[in-house]
Amino acid sequence: MAKGISHHTDAELFYQMKEEKAIAEQAFGELYARHSPRVFAYCRRILGDRDRAQDAFQDTFIKFYQSAQQERIMTNVPAFLLRIARNLCLNAQRTKHQTVQFEDFHASMNDESAEKAELLKLITTALELLPEDYREAFVLREYDGLSYQEICEVTNSSMATVKIRLFRAKQKIREILAPYLADLAK
């Protein structure tokens, strides 16, 4: 019995995007559902501006599909997607000054949510204050869940550099949020 689409690996789905339209559409939809949150999170938190993040996000998946039409060996789809997103975000940053917007932020309404929402607002604000390479390392690790090795691949950096950036990013955020975190940690 043929296995369902959700049981295919990322790589299998990537190669299916070269096949006939119905299969390609299904494979793309599955990969989109799997990875669109982390790609959008990357664009959103790296660029800050929601509209520019949306543009970069859309272009990422369109380029992703186009790249699947070429001969290519695929081993790590999320890292590949984030590399495309990264290039597009770098281009976007070059063309426009970064702006900080929290226009439509609205957090969950669970227990403790107000406190966490407040902290989240502070973290996203602190992220805007970080150097770009620190922010990128933090987003790739905390938002996209990449391992140190995967971050190295996406950013073309050494392991030592990644570790330092990540450590310093967290420490910087801690410093910025020190008064608040101290209360929260009590």
């Binding site: 669109s36 949150p37 996000f57 932020f105 957090a107 969950s108 973290i123 905390e142 938002y143």
Partner: peptide
Amino acid sequence: VQQDIEAFTP
């Protein structure tokens, strides 16, 4: 960060 629904929702 894990509660940052807005960032994870295209």
